[in-house]
Design a binder for these strands. Structure first.
Lengths: 342, 342
DNA sequence: AAAGCCTCCGAAAACCTTTTCGGAACGCCG
DNA sequence: CGGCGTTCCGAAAAGGTTTTCGGAGGCTTT
């Protein structure tokens, strides 16, 4: 096939060019290329050939202008750097990319002004819908501007219950984690959580306590809130071992906290998982598989969450708009820190 | 201001609506809103008012169709999950977002077919330019399709020297790292690298050896290639200490490797940084600040790299297209693992 | 042979904005 | 009062595609 390198600056081929080369009208060319009826096979063939020869690619702008649909969506994140946005974004990109949708990415950096500006730009580009990704699971105010396209909130729910939000089931995650520890035969379970200012931390605690309660157990020591970091894990584990030497499992607020806990346990001569089982949250690969032993963790299924958000947006574009908060299930990923390696 | 909630399905306001409301022609309305001349102040005011009342937002599609410029660029990454794409992407988004550009994000997942498909989609959306982000610093084949817009390759250079590529200066990074260790008074320096299949690893070794050589030093032991992970760091450090007990500094191929090395050093009773200084690469915050002591590392300035790529693309769009490979300087971030805490 | 139907194709409108150019109104000077 | 310059506004075209609708031609049937 003779590739036409299109010297820089030369206008891209248009449908008119194709029609001319094929010796038909633009209307016929359009119908031929789009598989519409009322075109003979021979003509269709001729047009296709002409299009290939000119490496014709239809101008989506013109198409979108006419159809009122652009086949684009906006992905508005508030902190791209945070490690939770990325998997969600991937999942969404995945679900969209499979179809014919393209994604505009915007990072508002947690700044309301910048957010408004981006929303404005996206609307002016006539996106068919918007996904708003929060940076924590705490509810966030809905978009300020009057938006006339469907919006789905992901990770952080909207404060307005009339909006559609898709969030991880943190309460279920806490419950799941404790049930796993109990299934491993542990009964003296402590919980070193993360930053209590986050609803994610508090929700997980709620679920964990509920599961303990249902099993007729009580937590060992108080639930300890601190930060999400390794240092907190090391410190909190030290205090825990001083006060409750007979603890046989520690559920941690994050994988980083768990890494700190593992460190302290090793220093104090406790074997993991034989003496104490340890479990993290978030299933951050680099943390869990680098640990000794490898860390059992709870995966929030963020990619799936992103895909769900994308699908929900699809539905809202095509049909009716859903409302309320939907949750995505988490899952336990078992590794050596709670069970002997397989 | 009376917000017009625009009942779902109702067409967005167009310039014609604004003109009608203001009692002028669309031409005048356009000129008024775009600050063109030949419009009286009073008329301009009336139009602005009408536009605000209808919350008019100009249709970028129509504008782009006419201008031949869309104000959009495509960002084509090959693995979004990798932690190097993200900062680059942020930098690019940053540089673009400051202006009036919007970014189409596409993840090809390292698949050539998918890549072609995405390029096709982007071209059909008439992007003004393309940034191609690689997943490693190894050269990659140029885009398959005939592309008539400027392209800038970031992180992974194109194999075609006629293309413009922007990459981190890994050789300089290796040199810099060794110079820092020497400045800290170390003379018996070992290098536990990463995966030797990556040019990033080999380039850093090249730079490190050059710097050692210039200082009249030789590396302690052989350069050890392995993987980028913690486990390799632990193992390699063990072997190193067995063979070269008097080592006083270890330069590591990645922050994860360095974490493993730190682990082994602590187990063997070596103090860091008093007995042995340790240094990583990549400056991955969660790794460096969670370490004990905090890890000195080399930052590849990826955000700056992304910004550079965006700026280069700007220039290529507006003026002439550059060629060849440009490098972005790295920088040493000093923390406790090489110098006493400040 | 005439009428009618089916198949295929083309002209033109529509989408929305920007820009160019002609025209209208008005004030000032001769 | 007429001519001229200035200032402001509007008609129309352009950009590329899709869709509607009318028309032309060929084939079948009576």
């Amino acid at each position: 096939m003779a590739r036409t390198p299109a010297p820089r600056g030369a206008r891209a081929a248009t449908l008119t060019d194709v029609a001319k080369l094929a010796g038909v009208s633009v209307a016929t060319a359009s119908k031929a290329l789009n598989g519409r009826n009322h075109v003979s096979a021979a003509t269709r063939e001729r047009v296709a050939e002409a299009a290939a020869q000119l490496s014709f690619s239809p101008n989506s702008l013109a198409r979108g202008l006419l159809a009122g649909r652009t086949g684009t969506v906006g992905l508005l994140t508030s902190d791209l750097v945070g490690r939770f946005s990325l998997p969600i974004l991937m999942g969404a990109e995945d679900a969209f990319g499979a179809g014919e949708m393209s994604v505009f990415l915007c990072d508002a950096r947690g700044d309301a002004i910048r957010e408004r500006h981006h929303v404005q730009a996206l609307l002016s580009r006539r996106v068919d819908g918007l996904i708003v990704v929060g940076s924590s699971t705490d509810p966030r105010p809905p978009l300020a501007a009057a938006v006339d396209v469907p919006v789905v909130y992901a990770y952080a729910p909207s404060e307005d219950p009339e909006d559609l939000s898709i969030v991880p089931d943190n309460v279920g995650a806490g419950r799941m984690a404790v049930e796993h520890l109990i299934a491993c035969g542990r009964t003296r379970i402590a919980h070193i959580s993360g930053d209590g200012a986050y609803s994610a931390a508090r929700d997980r605690v709620t679920g964990a306590l509920a599961a303990l309660n249902e099993a007729g157990l009580s937590p060992v020591g108080d639930v300890a809130y601190g930060t999400w970091e390794e240092g907190w894990g090391r410190a909190a584990a030290g205090m825990l071992l001083d006060r409750e030497p007979d603890v046989d499992a520690v559920l941690c607020g994050s994988d980083q906290v768990a890494r700190g806990v593992l460190d302290t346990l090793r220093e104090r001569g406790r074997r993991v998982p034989e003496d104490v089982a340890v479990m993290g949250f978030d299933d951050w690969q680099v943390m869990t598989t680098g640990a000794r032993p490898k860390l059992t963790s709870v995966d929030m299924n963020l990619e799936e969450l992103g895909r769900s958000a994308a699908r929900a947006l699809f539905e809202a574009i095509d049909a009716e708009h859903g409302r309320g908060v939907r949750t995505v299930q988490c899952r336990v990923v078992v590794r050596g820190s709670t069970a002997a390696e397989a």
